[in-house]
Nucleic acid binder design. Structure first.
Length: 426
RNA sequence: GGAGAAUUACCCAAGUGGUUGAAGGGGUCGGUCUUGAAAACCGAUAGGGGGUGCAAGCCCCGCUAGGGUUCAAAUCCCUAAUUCUCCGCCA
C-alpha cells in the first residue's frame, strides 16, 4: 500500500513513478475524496467532542439535583445531525481505502520503465554448455531416466501435473535439502507454514484484491481459504499486526512449500514438461528489516540465490527487471535465470524483490525504534531460494552425457546417498 | 459435528453502565545496599491509529473484530474470529 500522505504531498511524483510500471494513475478524484474526508472528520469529531462533554456533565448535574433531561435532548439533537455526516465519512473512507489498496508499489528510482523488453542482464555466470552430440530435452531425459512420470501424473490428477518417481523424487528432495542446509548455514530460521491461508494474508502480501482469481480457492471452509501461490504469502504475514523491537531485526526466514497456481494452463510449446504446472516446489526466503537496511538485505538475497545456482554448477544469468515487469507489490526485482539448452532461453528460478514498506503498511508490521521510541514500518523482502521446477530440467539438460545419462551435481550427491550418475532405465 | 467457557496494556490479572487509558502483580529501566551478583528496599515506566496546529497543545477512535442499545459502554445485546474444556467422529 502506498502512503496516502505521499500521494497528497507529491501526486506528480507518484504518477510518474507508476507510469514506469505502465500504470496510468489519475489522482484528482482521490485527492478530492481525501480533502472532503478530512473536512468531514473535523465536523464529525467536534460534534463528538461536544456530545462527550455533555454526557460527562450528567453525574455532577444529577448530584446537584438539576434537571438532566435537557442534556439528553441536546445530545440527541447533535447525534441526529452527526449521523448523516458519519455515514458519508465512512463511505468516503472505504472508497479511498479501496482505491489506494489497488495501486501497485512505487518502483525504485533507478529502474527503467516499460515491460519485459527493457529488462537488463547484469551478470552472467558460466558458459553455455555445448554438446558434441544431439542433446535431448528435459522431458525426454526425465522420461528415459525414469525420473518423472507425466502420463500417470495426468491420469491421477489431470492436465498440468506430474509425478516425481524413484530417483526423480530423490533428486527433487536432494535439491530441497541442499537449499535448506545452505539457508540454515546462513542463520535463516526454517518455517513450515500452513498451505491454506485466509483472505487477509493474501491482501497483506499484495496479491489481493487485484489477483484473487489467480489462486485456488477452497470450498467447504468458512471463512474461505486459498492455497498459497508462494510461501512468501505466509512468511510476510508472520508478524502481521505486530510491533517488533529494533533488536529483533533483521528477521530472516525461509520456508519450503509446494506453490499452487492457476496460471499453468497457458502452455506455450516451448514450455512443455515441468516448466509450468499447477503445483511446484519452492524454498522461499523472506527478510524483515529496518528501512535503511533493506538495500543491503536485497543484495544478500540476490547473492544467496545466485550462489545456490552457482554451486549447482549451472549456467545462468541475473536480470534487473524493468519497472513494468516487476510484480504489483514490489519496488525492485532481480531475476535469476537458468539456461535451458533445449529451448535456448533463460528461465526464472528465483525472483528477489524488495517490497519496501508496501506489504508492512498493509499488514501493520512495525518495529519500535529504540532511539526515538517511535514505531516505524519494516521493509519486507523475499527471494526464492530456489524453485525446483526449472532447476530440475536445467540440471538434466546441462548435465546430460552422450550415452543418455545425467551426472548428479556434486553438491547434491551427499543428499542422494552418494549417487553420481542417473542412468537410463532399460 | 454438538455443548460450555474465555479473549483487558510486554505478561498475568482486577474491573458489570458515569472524570476508567483502565486497580494489583510480574517484567523492564534507574537507584540504594554489596568486592560482584542475588535478595531486599526506593523510584520511574502504560500502548496504538487518526485529525488539527510552526510548536506546546487540543480533539476523535481505541479493553479480540464488526454492529446495536443508552445522554453515557471494558461493562448490556447481536454477529464473527480465535483459544480452551467436555462429548462425538476420524486420519
Amino acid at each position: 500500500m502506498i502512503d496516502i500522505n505521499l500521494i497528497r504531498e507529491n501526486p506528480e511524483y507518484v504518477k510518474k513513478a507508476l507510469a514506469k510500471k505502465l500504470w496510468d494513475a489519475d489522482f484528482t478524484e482521490l485527492l478530492s475524496w481525501d480533502k472532503e474526508k478530512r473536512e468531514l472528520m473535523q465536523i464529525v469529531e467536534s460534534n463528538k467532542a461536544e456530545m462527550n462533554k455533555l454526557s460527562a456533565s450528567v453525574p455532577a448535574a444529577k448530584k446537584a439535583g438539576e434537571d438532566v433531561s435537557k442534556i439528553f435532548v441536546k445530545v440527541k439533537e447533535i447525534a441526529k445531525k452527526n449521523a448523516e455526516f458519519e455515514a458519508k465519512l465512512k463511505e468516503l473512507d472505504q472508497r479511498i481505502t479501496d482505491y489506494v489498496a489497488c495501486l501497485p508499489n512505487i518502483p525504485d528510482d533507478d529502474l527503467v520503465g516499460g515491460g519485459k523488453e527493457n529488462n537488463k542482464v547484469i551478470h552472467t555466470f558460466g558458459k553455455k554448455p555445448e554438446f558434441a552430440f544431439k542433446a535431448k530435452d528435459h522431458v525426454e531425459l526425465a522420461t528415459s531416466l525414469g525420473l518423472v512420470d507425466y502420463d500417470r501424473g495426468a491420469k491421477i490428477a489431470g492436465r498440468g501435473s506430474w509425478i516425481y518417481t524413484n530417483l526423480g523424487a530423490r533428486l527433487e528432495w536432494a535439491l530441497l535439502n541442499f537449499f535448506i542446509s545452505e539457508h540454515l548455514k546462513d542463520g535463516y530460521e526454517f518455517i513450515l507454514p500452513p498451505h491454506l491461508l485466509n483472505e487477509e494474508s493474501g491482501y497483506v502480501a499484495g496479491q489481493f484484491p487485484k489477483f484473487r482469481e489467480d489462486v485456488f480457492w477452497l470450498d467447504g471452509l468458512e471463512p474461505k481459504r486459498f492455497l498459497l501461490p508462494t510461501a512468501e504469502t505466509a512468511l510476510v504475514n508472520l508478524h502481521r499486526n505486530e510491533i517488533l523491537t529494533e533488536d529483533q531485526l533483521p528477521r530472516k526466514y525461509f520456508a519450503y512449500t509446494p506453490c499452487y497456481r492457476r496460471e499453468a494452463g497457458s502452455y506455450r510449446t516451448e514450455e512443455r514438461g515441468m516448466i509450468r504446472g499447477y503445483q511446484f516446489d519452492k524454498v522461499e526466503m523472506v527478510q524483515y528489516t529496518k528501512p535503511e537496511e533493506s538495500d543491503k538485505a536485497f543484495e544478500e538475497l540476490v547473492t544467496k540465490a545466485a550462489n545456490l545456482v552457482e554451486k549447482l554448477g549451472l549456467h545462468f544469468q541475473i536480470s534487473k527487471l524493468a519497472a513494468g515487469d516487476i510484480s504489483h507489490s514490489m519496488a525492485r526485482t532481480y531475476d535469476i535465470e537458468v539456461y535451458i539448452p533445449s529451448i535456448g532461453i533463460y528461465k526464472e528460478v528465483s525472483s528477489a524483490s524488495n517490497a519496501r514498506d508496501y506489504q508492512a503498511r498493509r499488514g501493520m508490521v512495525r518495529y519500535r525504534d529504540l532511539a526515538t521510541g517511535k514505531t516505524r514500518f519494516v521493509h519486507t523482502l523475499n527471494a526464492s531460494g530456489l524453485a525446483t521446477s526449472r532447476i530440475f530440467p536445467a540440471i538434466l539438460e546441462q548435465y546430460q552425457q552422450e550415452d543418455g545419462s545425467v551426472l548428479v551435481p556434486e553438491v547434491l550427491q551427499p543428499f542422494m546417498g552418494g549417487i553420481k550418475v542417473l542412468k537410463p532405465v532399460k
